[in-house]
Structures are given as structure tokens and as C-alpha cells.
Design a protein around this nucleic acid. Structure first.
Lengths: 207, 207
DNA sequence: CGCAGTTTTGATTAGCTTCAACGGCGGTGG
DNA sequence: CCACCGCCGTTGAAGCTAATCAAAACTGCG
């Protein structure tokens, strides 16, 4: 009963709130039910990079490490469910095959992180943004549908910090993709993919 | 007996040889016994990034994915041992705690990859190189010993492809660090760390 | 000793960042 | 309900850093 309580309790966080700080002991595993969050790494002088964004349905904190390796911040008003790590431990003991699932998940994350490495090391701004938009599209609806519309809960500077650029460059790149008729921006936080193959080619295909 | 054979057989690879190609099915897990290798991702137009380097004692291919996600190339003449994945599977069934070890390993790799993301996204060339040298130093001998000397089996362009720079920039950055008395270069492929704290500070400490 | 490949160094270019100003949107208070 | 204010995003101009292009120096090797 208490375990169920844990799973179903949904905590609200206002935009800008910090859910966990880097280095804190992991006490819970979280699932985002609504809103959006970012995984943040910061340097002493303020330079930072967002390892990724958390969208509804995503898990976070589901790792093998004893401490959190990111700050987790709410981008907009959000709600998350949490499960205690103690409970997770019980589950893992009871269902050993979970261990394997977890390993597979982590391997997928590792692959994604390494893809991101190539992106940051070698891709041009327009290629990075194309990549980002396609990944976001793949997470929301079924990809490839022409005229697909994708929500951008995060601001331009959030995208910049994820892609290793400045806000200005992100903005300029958006208008460039718009001019090339690859995308349309019906609203600030809404992207319509006009030319899926073109965007995919720009993104470097395989990535 | 055949299992032992597998473990102990050591295969030679000449410099430049490709051990596995990206996308191939994983048939073996490898351990490097001598030499050095690189983990390569390449774009269609030739741009590439090296996810990491493999040094003697390192494992490679120890993942939960069914296919290799990198090309693996020998940098210098190398020898590797290999174990079939079938054998690994047996081991994992017999020793369930291996699964957990594997998960921990993968989480460490994930953390390292994400650190590298921040490096590629936000660090300046000198900061990147300082980071790289310190990580290399940490892998060879006990770190912090002043006057420590680190071997660089890879060439300058390999370092460039790992750090998201060009060969020229890497070379210039080496001479810069040399002029700042942070390092010395007794030979092309040998770095002596003169000012460990200074290098660490340049590298961004926490990373 | 000479050659080939790699590295270093130099000059130039291009692209991103920085700095700065403008515009649009939403929220708040009158 | 409207006007004002502040924030975020866009756009513009200038500066700087790393990439590019090119040549010289060094290293290892035959």
C-alpha cells in the first residue's frame, strides 16, 4: 500500500524549480507526468550544457550510480511521480530480469550520448538544430508524417545550451531553416516540419 | 578447454587495421593486451569523432547492444584477446551479480560520455587538451605525482578527432601549454606534466 | 643520407560569439 | 479594458577564435 502511494503521488514543480542537485544521493526515481525538464551540467564560471530534456513519460534517475550526476530543473510547470530507490531495489531483487532491462536502457542512453558527442564535435549549427528537431519529433508522434508539428517547451537559450551554441546562433539558424522551407514556426514554441527528408539529410542521416 | 582457448588466444593487428566495423554483430568481447586503439564514428563526408581510446587492460565491446556502435581501429601494432559473446552469456547466467557489475561499468561510461559532451560543447581548446592529458595520466600511473610522464600512442590528428578540433589547433595548443610551463614534450609521443594543479585548474577541476 | 609522413608554424578566411538595439508577447495594475 | 512594463526572441554590426590553406621543419626509417 505504501509502495503504491509512492508510485502514484504526483509532485508539482513550478517553472524554474530545481528537483535535484548534482551530487545529491539518489533517493527517488522520477517519472515526468506533465511539463518538461532539463538535465544540467554547469561549470564554475557559468558555462553549461544540458545533457538532455525530460518529456512526459520519461524516467529520470534510473541509473546505477549512487549520486545524481545532473541538476534537474523544471522548464515549465511540471508534475512528477517518484518511487523510492529502496522500492526499486526490492523490485530488482524480485525480478532479476529487470537488471537486464536496465542495462539495455543504459546502453541506449550511452549510444545517444555518444551520438551527441559527434554532433557537438563536428556538426554545423544548422545540422545540429535539424538533428535536435528530428529527435524531438521522434519522441512526440510517429515520425515521417509530413506537416508534423512539434512542441518546443524549452526556450531558445535552452536549445543553445543543449547544442553547444549561443541563443543568437540558434535563433538565426531557425530563421535560416525557415527560409529554406524546411520548417515553419507557427508559434514561438511550435515547429512544423515541412520537408522531413530534407531535414533528415541536413541532420546527417545516420545519426 | 575451448573456452580457455578463446580467452587466452591473442590476436595481432598491425597499425591502421580495423578490428570491427560499426553495425557488425558483436561476436567477441575484446581485451587489449598491448598497443592502442580508437573508437571511431564517421559521417558520410568524412568528418569523424573518436569516442575514446583503448589502452592495454581496457575491455571493449562489453555492452548490452547486439551490434557494434563504433569502428575499432588499431593506432599502432596491437594485440588483443577475445572472448565469444556466447561464452559471456554463459558467465552472466552462472554469475548473476555480473549483470550488476556490467550495469555499473556502463553507468561509468555514460557519465564519462556526458562529461565529454560538456567538454565538446563549452570548453576552449586549451581546456580540452588539459582535460585529455589528465584523463590519460589518470589511466596510466597514479595521478598527482609531479613530473609524471604520459605516453601518447596516438597522433595529433587522432587527438583532434577526439576533442573536436583540427590537428593544427591541437599542435598550437600543445606549444601554448608548453610555453606556460604546464607541460613539457621530451618526445613527440611523450608528455611530462610539470604543473599538475595548474593543468587541473585549466581543465575545469570538477570534470 | 635521403625520403615520406607527420608535426609545427605562418597567413588568411570564415563563421560563431559578443555586444547592442529593436520588436513582440504576456502579465500586471490602474 | 487598456496601457505600461519586462522578458524573451530576433536582427544587426563588429570582433575574435579556430578552420583553412600553405609551407617549412622535424622524425623515423630505409
Amino acid at each position: 500500500m505504501s509502495a503504491l502511494d509512492e508510485v502514484t503521488s504526483s509532485q508539482p514543480y513550478p517553472a524554474g524549480a530545481t528537483v535535484v542537485r548534482i551530487g545529491e544521493n539518489r533517493q527517488y526515481v522520477y517519472t515526468l507526468t506533465s511539463g518538461a525538464m532539463r538535465l544540467v551540467r554547469t561549470l564554475a564560471d557559468g558555462r553549461r550544457q544540458f545533457t538532455g530534456f525530460v518529456l512526459p513519460g520519461d524516467y529520470v534517475g534510473l541509473t546505477g550510480t549512487p549520486k545524481h550526476r545532473h541538476d534537474i530543473e523544471a522548464i515549465v510547470d511540471s508534475r512528477i511521480c517518484r518511487t523510492s530507490t529502496a522500492h526499486m531495489r526490492q523490485l530488482r531483487e524480485r525480478y532479476p530480469q529487470l537488471e537486464r532491462k536496465l542495462l539495455q536502457r543504459t546502453c541506449m542512453e550511452l549510444a545517444a550520448s555518444q551520438d551527441n558527442g559527434l554532433l557537438l564535435a563536428r556538426l554545423q549549427p544548422s545540422e545540429r538544430l535539424a538533428n535536435f528537431l528530428l529527435r524531438l519529433a521522434a519522441r512526440s508522434t510517429e515520425p515521417g508524417a509530413p506537416g508534423e508539428t512539434v512542441a518546443l517547451p524549452m526556450g531558445r537559450s535552452d536549445i543553445a545550451d543543449h547544442l553547444g551554441l549561443t541563443m543568437e546562433t540558434v535563433s538565426r539558424t531557425f530563421t535560416k531553416l525557415k527560409q529554406q522551407q524546411l520548417i515553419a514556426l507557427p508559434q514561438l514554441h511550435l515547429v512544423q516540419i515541412l520537408d522531413y527528408p530534407g531535414l533528415r539529410q541536413l541532420a546527417g542521416d545516420e545519426l
